[in-house]
Amino acid sequence: MFPEAAFLHDPAMLWQFVAASCLQVVVIASLYLAVARIPARWVPWLRIATLAAFAAICIGSNAPVIAHGFGTPGFVYSLGLAAAASLIATVALVHGQWRQWLARRKRRATAL
């Protein structure tokens, strides 16, 4: 609509990607720094929360980029794959925690 602003299209895509990446680094680093202050039994759940936060940030940063028309296939696919990978890892960690919880519960039940 404004031809004089057309040269800003490519730098805007780059800076949106940099801003989304910085936000991801800050959130993930903040959650990992909190590990030292919580009991060891909660660390796996913190990992799950961190991966879920990463997936939410990937999806959340992907939506505005596409809505503004800056969604190049490489950017959209990379964020989508990162979100999918973190969701798969989250499900795997939750499944592992669930199995450990069931095993502990079974041991307690048979010990009585």
Rank of each mutant, 00 (worst) to 15 (best):
C58W: 00
W42M: 13
A109Y: 04
H9Q: 12
Q97M: 10
V18H: 13
F17T: 14
A109K: 06
V76Q: 08
A85V: 12
I38K: 06
F54R: 03
S61P: 04
S30C: 07
I88L: 15
S30Q: 02
L23Y: 04
I38T: 04
A63N: 08
L46T: 05
A20M: 10
I88P: 03
H9W: 11
K106M: 09
Y32I: 00
G71H: 07
A67L: 13
M13R: 15
A103M: 09
I59F: 09
A36K: 07
I88F: 14
R107C: 11
R107S: 15
F75K: 05
L31Y: 01
V94A: 15
A49F: 01
L102Q: 15
W15N: 02
S21W: 08
A20P: 11
L93I: 03
L33G: 12
I88S: 09
A84W: 09
A20W: 00
F75S: 14
A109C: 08
M1C: 11
L46M: 15
L112C: 07
D10V: 02
V65T: 15
W42V: 06
A103R: 14
P39T: 06
Q100E: 15
I28E: 12
W42Y: 13
V65A: 14
T72S: 13
L102A: 12
P73D: 12
T110Q: 15
W45I: 07
P73Q: 10
P3L: 02
G96H: 05
A36F: 02
V25M: 12
L8S: 04
Q97P: 02
A29P: 01
V65M: 15
K106Y: 02
C22D: 05
A92N: 05
A83E: 04
L14Y: 09
F17R: 06
A20C: 10
A12N: 08
F54I: 03
F2N: 14
A52S: 06
G96V: 03
A89R: 10
P44C: 04
A103Q: 10
V35P: 00
V25G: 01
T50K: 02
A5K: 02
C22M: 09
V35Q: 01
L33S: 10
L81P: 00
F70P: 06
I57N: 06
I48K: 02
E4M: 06
P44Q: 05
P44E: 06
T50R: 08
F7H: 12
Q100Y: 01
R108F: 03
A109M: 08
W15Q: 13
L93K: 01
W45L: 14
A53E: 00
P44Y: 00
L8K: 09
R107D: 15
A83L: 03
F75C: 01
I28F: 05
A19Y: 00
G71T: 07
A111Y: 00
G71W: 02
F17C: 11
M1V: 14
A49T: 07
C22P: 01
G71C: 10
V25L: 13
T72R: 13
W101F: 13
A82K: 13
P73G: 08
A63C: 02
G96A: 14
A29H: 01
S86M: 03
T90M: 14
L102D: 04
P64T: 11
A5M: 11
I59N: 06
L87Y: 03
F54S: 07
A83S: 12
T110K: 10
P39R: 09
A111F: 07
L93H: 05
A85L: 15
A89N: 05
P44H: 03
I59E: 11
R105E: 06
E4V: 08
F17I: 10
I88V: 11
A103E: 07
W45V: 03
G60N: 07
